[in-house]
Design a protein around this nucleic acid. Structure first.
Length: 856
RNA sequence: GCUUGAAUGGUGGAAUGGUAGACACGCUAGACUUAGGAUCUAGUGCCGCAGGGUGUAAGGGUUCGAGUCCCUUUUCAAGCACCA
């Protein structure tokens, strides 16, 4: 049952117990009558580079918590899986010609082996991968639900296109004008794309944040990303015409200070607004803007530029003539794509007005009245007719109410959040379960009473027009899922067919469907009455799709009739603890919340939010304090550390580095410290023959050891609950240092310590536990409780301060009164000289801790 | 630029407003050793032989008492960055 070694041979010990746990299924989670605890790690992308030293930081933390909760009597679920669709596998396929599935399988195997070498208490029977057809079948099914409920549509619109990656990217994947992956330049292109209507959930996603136990910074980020701002839509009538220019503003109180209107150069009304004598200049300016990259355009140091259209509009409140400009600091994809310029009270407008010598007219004043322009805070209105004298807050309401009455404006809310661009021109992703059919054929489905294709039919058809033909999106049905990825000969996108799946065999691409039976087959040109023809959607879903719901699949990974088994969902619910990188603050974590809330809304989930408690471990940096990267050559490979010191040491080391949430540099030297700690434990427990050491015996512990054990139980329990693993480990070290000084300790105490150690260093704890003759895993044992007969201390130490500075210590009887203690303190040898210098005017006594004498 | 967070020995880091530097690394000395990169013992913020003084980025404040709370400044990190 146990390893036969007298030395601390961590290689043999760790391998033995890892095999033991896997074979015995020690950590298999099954629904039973007990409180549940679901710990979840963000599942990794199994990259070819293998496990990074940062991965096990979070995994170890969740493992400690999971093992602790199990010992506390909880039924713990700790699963692991693979977020295995994605770009790197596809790029590998393009360069090597190897199918991404083969390469992904290889990398996954490697990741699984590496992770298993850490000895995590994972239920491997629940392993999933987003790339398994049995998994993505249900990703497709959830998409069809979104489709059915009108939350998925196609749109031809400007999207971020990355020429290097040859794909479109979501807003969230573009950072500072470059692609999130690889930092390549991006540009805007008009393309037909699948889009998910996440904006319909803006308010719900915002409100739901309030109750989540998440890092404040992450909540703030999501808040900013959704970017709700309330203000007004105001119409400026065009001089001498019946049209108007609409702007969105959050500061309607400044409307009397408007000295220009600026439109984004791309604004569709620019042509109409431009007068003939300005047309040439406007054209030139627009051309210069489109040639700019987004990075150049949003470069703040460039200053502001624009051109006059020749047109004037009228201020709906004052009737003042206002020139209409176009300017590239106005963004086409926000609000109405046009703004009212109030230079006196907006920094950007101020800059623009200065450049082009436009009027700068203050209409707001602070209480002091000596404001430097631009004055962007709120204040009291001036030069604003009837509204003068009102505060900004009041004026905003009154002005909008007035504009609404005269039909020139209304209150409105704007969001920074855009609908989620959901399609990618890639091979290695989930195919859409959609077939494009002609409008007439779509109507045949609608009019066929019992057509199976009605399962996911939306109220309004999703369609687009091409070459005079209207194409409608026909959703396949649950019975057709999964729509598997077809084999293709080349993964490389080409100019002619930038979408890899367009190279799929015609028998996959072109299909015929039986309207009545729901049968789908390769199109063969022969159409009986019940059949219609169509073409499959060739875009695939983005990587985020699979990670939107994986935490639900873990609950019933083998369920074949549903994406999640109802009983399993009722029992396990959502993760009690979710841990993973802060880099997912607005991507994965926002998308998953959206899907979860949607599934709740259509009545197939019991909870509104997927992750009630979230934690981000800090980044582990290289020894030089900078981010680990291949190019810097400061990458640490977990395999070499495990080979040299063992998994227990690495686990302990990563937890001992510092607070879990802090970013910390890796240090080779410090790892020796925790390794020494484990060797010290081994020497204290095991003698030269490999037997339990004589130091551990059946005698009763001395008071010191018993108090120390109680302290250690208390401290480690509390620290684990609060994820303060570094201080928990230091307490374990304090205990061992104490044991080293003691003559002996009891078997009971020795075993209790092993239990405290087990969540952190499970292999050595399990091995020593077994050597005490235990036949069951240490993980099955109940967490130790405090000893019942607590030693009663007769004397306590009181610190004596004079004017807040420590001068002496006195030993007093536990039940001494405050007066007695004050008297003792006043005659303490090191205190006396200070008392002689003045008179004691006050004594502050903190029970059982200190006494402070105030001397003047 | 804006927002948020942080700053403690040679190093990583401890410290419900109540003994600053726990624990560990490193270093110094010693012990055991053929040997020590194993192990054990003692020491280790700074100044001072010592009594003692001083000390948590800098300055101010609140308090009997401040690393901790408040204000100003500096530096660093993260996020956002023309979102009207």
């Amino acid at each position: 049952m146990i390893v036969r070694c007298s030395q601390y041979d961590f290689q043999v010990i760790e391998r033995y117990w890892q095999d033991f746990w896997l074979k015995q299924k020690t950590f298999k989670a099954q629904e039973r009558e007990a409180p549940k605890y679901y710990v979840l790690d963000m599942f990794p992308y199994p990259s070819g580079a293998g496990l990074h030293i940062g991965h096990p930081e979070g995994y170890t933390a969740s493992d400690i918590l999971g093992r602790y909760k199990k010992a506390k009597g909880f039924n713990v679920l700790h699963p692991m899986g693979w977020d295995a669709f994605g770009l790197p596998a596809e790029q590998h396929a393009i360069t090597t010609g190897m199918h991404p599935a083969v390469n992904t399988e290889k990398n996954t195997e490697n990741f699984r082996n590496q992770i298993q070498r850490f000895g995590f208490a994972i239920d491997w029977d629940r392993e999933i991968s987003t790339t398994w057809p049995s998994y993505y079948r249900w990703t497709q099914w959830i998409f069809l639900q979104l489709f059915k409920h009108g939350l998925a549509y196609v749109d031809e619109k400007p999207v971020w296109w990355c020429p290097m990656l040859e794909t479109v990217l979501a807003n969230e994947e573009v950072i500072g004008g470059k692609s999130e992956r690889g930092s390549f330049p991006v540009e805007r292109r008009q393309l037909r794309q699948w889009v998910l209507r996440i904006t319909r959930y803006s308010d719900k996603l915002l409100d739901g944040l309030k109750d989540l136990d998440w890092p404040e910074a992450t909540k703030r980020q999501q808040n900013l990303w959704i970017g709700r701002s309330s203000g007004g839509l105001i119409e400026f009538p065009v001089e001498g015409g019946d049209r108007s220019v609409a702007v969105f503003t959050t500061r309607p109180d400044t409307i009397c200070g408007v000295s220009f209107i600026a439109l984004a150069p791309e604004h569709p009304d620019v042509d109409f607004l431009t007068t003939d004598n300005c047309r040439a200049e406007i054209q030139a300016y627009r051309t210069s803007v489109t040639s700019k990259s987004d990075l150049e355009r949003t470069d703040l140091s460039e200053g502001k530029s624009g051109t006059f259209t020749g047109r004037y509009v009228l201020n709906p409140l004052t009737g003042t003539r206002i020139p209409v400009w176009i300017a590239d600091y106005v963004l086409p994809y926000h609000g109405t794509g046009s703004i009212m310029g109030v230079p006196a009270h907006d920094k950007r407008d101020f800059e623009f007005a200065q450049t082009y010598s436009l009027e700068i007219k203050p209409v707001l004043q602070s209480a002091q009245g000596t404001d430097t322009l631009p004055f962007c805070a709120e204040g009291v209105l001036i030069h604003s007719g009837d509204f003068s004298g009102l505060t900004s807050q009041k004026a905003q309401n009154k002005i909008l109410e007035y504009l609404e009455k005269i039909g020139r404006g209304k209150k409105t809310v704007q969001y920074k959040l855009h609908d989620w661009l959901f399609s990618r021109q890639r091979y290695w992703g989930e195919p859409f379960p959609i077939v494009w059919v002609k409008q007439v054929d779509y109507h045949r489905i609608i009019s066929c009473k019992n057509s199976p294709f009605k399962e996911f039919l939306p109220q309004e058809p999703v369609s687009y027009r091409e070459k005079g033909e209207m194409w409608c999106a026909l959703p396949l049905t649950t019975a057709h899922l999964p729509v598997q990825l077809p084999d293709i000969s080349s993964f490389k996108p080409t100019k002619e067919s930038p979408i890899p799946l367009q190279n799929a065999h015609k028998s996959w691409l072109n299909v015929k469907m039986n309207v009545q039976t729901g049968e789908v087959a390769a199109a063969d040109g022969q159409l009986d009455e019940a059949w219609i023809e169509g073409t499959r959607e060739t875009n695939t879903m983005p990587q985020w799709a699979g990670s939107c719901w994986y935490y639900l699949r873990y609950l019933s990974p083998h369920e074949e009739n549903s994406f999640v088994n109802k009983q399993a969902e009722a029992y396990w619910g959502v993760p009690d603890f979710y841990i993973g990188g802060a880099e997912h603050a607005v991507l994965h974590l926002l998308y998953a919340r959206f899907w979860h809330r949607f599934l709740f809304d259509i009545g197939i989930l019991n909870t509104e939010e997927p992750f009630p408690k979230l934690f981000h471990p800090g980044v582990i940096l290289g020894t030089d304090g900078s981010k680990m990267s291949k190019s810097r050559g400061n990458v640490v490979n977990p395999d070499t550390i495990i080979a040299q010191y063992g998994a227990d040491t690495l686990r302990l080391y990563e937890m001992f580095l510092g607070p879990l949430e802090a970013s910390k540099p890796w240090s080779v030297q410090n790892i020796e410290g925790v390794h020494r700690f484990l060797k010290k434990i081994w020497r204290l427990y095991v003698d030269a023959e490999g037997q339990i050491s004589k130091k551990i015996c059946d005698k009763e512990d001395c008071q010191k050891i018993q108090c120390l054990l109680d302290e250690t139980i208390e401290k480690t329990s509390e620290d684990i609950e609060h994820l303060r693993f570094n201080t928990a480990i230091s307490q374990l070290m304090i205990f061992i240092n104490g044991v080293q000084k003691a003559a002996f300790i009891s078997r009971q105490t020795a075993k209790k310590f092993l239990q405290l150690l087990a969540p952190f260093a499970p292999h050595i704890a399990e091995e020593l536990w077994a050597r005490f003759g235990e036949s069951k895993s240490i993980s099955e044992a109940q967490w130790p409780s405090l000893s019942e007969n607590k030693w009663v201390q007769s004397q306590i130490k009181i610190v004596v301060q004079v004017n807040g500075k420590v001068r002496d210590e006195i030993l007093v009887h536990t039940h001494a009164t405050q007066d007695q203690i004050v008297q003792m303190a006043k005659v303490a040898p090191k205190v006396l000289p200070y008392l002689k210098r003045g008179t004691c005017v006050r004594e502050i006594y903190v029970p059982h801790k200190l006494i402070n004498l105030v001397v003047h």
